[in-house]
């Protein structure tokens, strides 16, 4: 999109061009770069001691591990369902398809806190709609990992689908039909034709969901017990440490979260051009 913008602007006078550049760069600087840089600055104010101290705290290590665990599981679930639902939305016609399409965007518009509350209402072990039955069968959802994974899945639901659907639509079903006529069954067609075609959309969707899952706060905070060392994820820990005047630790963990997210984006940026050459 950046290149399209610059070609359009190229026709205008250079003054307008510079003003626009200044505005965009200034906006990004004030909103994103500067605050993030401050987190980094505070993290490394005393060299690496901040990070070392933070990692010495067992609660921090546990929170980071838990966050990673929940994010990976939620992303795997979301990828499988996301690709499946995208295929359903693009390739099949059925009653209620538009309603489903709208429903998928719901997590984007609803506050994550509401999502958390809704899950508590349904799966709560004491007065929930479905929770007591599950608890009788030995499955605790709320204040435990299943609930946290569900909350994360809910929040990242649209991210894979919204990446994959337009690519599937553009791809069309010609190639799939050709594969079928050449003897491929449904699974072979998907693995050899459809999946390679949507590969990059899926990768982007996964990276976006992973970044979002690592940073999820509201929904997870409501459904998790937030007991340090047990059911506390990294984002909640950052908030708690910050409020307890352990700013050093809060900044260090915040930096690690940012670092992971940036790493995801860099990995994709490095992978992509290689793929296009081959």
């Amino acid at each position: 999109m950046a290149s399209r913008g610059s070609t359009a602007v190229a026709n205008q006078s250079s003054v307008v061009k510079w003003v626009l550049r200044f505005l965009v760069i200034g906006y990004l600087l004030m909103l994103v770069a500067w605050p993030t840089a401050y987190v980094v600055k505070h993290t490394f104010a005393d060299g690496l001691t901040g990070i070392q101290d933070a990692l010495a705290d067992p609660d921090v290590v546990h929170a980071l591990k838990l966050t990673a665990q929940i994010a990976v599981i939620a992303v795997i679930i979301n990828t499988v369902f996301g690709v499946g639902m995208s295929l359903l939305l693009v390739r099949k016609t059925f009653i209620g398809k538009r309603a489903l399409s709208v429903l998928i965007d719901l997590p984007l518009s609803v506050s994550p806190v509401v999502v958390g509350l809704a899950l508590v209402l349904v799966y709560n072990g004491r007065f929930g709609w479905f929770g007591p039955w599950l608890e009788d069968h030995g499955i605790q959802v709320i204040f435990a990992k299943p609930g946290m994974i569900m909350a994360t899945c809910f929040v990242i639901l649209p991210l894979v689908i919204r990446e994959v659907v337009p690519v599937l639509e553009e791809l069309g079903d010609d190639q799939e039909q050709a594969a079928r006529s050449l003897g491929a069954n449904a699974r072979q067609t998907f693995m050899r034709i459809t999946l390679p075609g949507i590969k990059w959309a899926v990768v982007y969707g996964v990276v976006l969901s992973l970044a979002r899952a690592l940073g999820e706060f509201g929904a997870v905070k409501v459904v998790a017990g937030n007991v340090g060392g047990e059911t506390q994820v990294a984002t909640v820990l950052v908030q708690q440490k910050y409020q307890n005047f352990q700013q050093e630790t809060a900044y260090s963990v915040a930096f690690m979260l940012v670092f992971m997210a940036v790493l995801c984006l860099v990995v994709v940026a490095l992978l992509r051009p290689k793929e296009q050459e081959s």
Partner: peptide, 14 residues
């Protein structure tokens, strides 16, 4: 289609 042993050529090549 995969069991009919037909070859199909599409207008837009596919």
């Amino acid at each position: 289609p995969q069991k009919r042993n037909v070859g199909f050529v599409f207008q837009h090549y596919a």
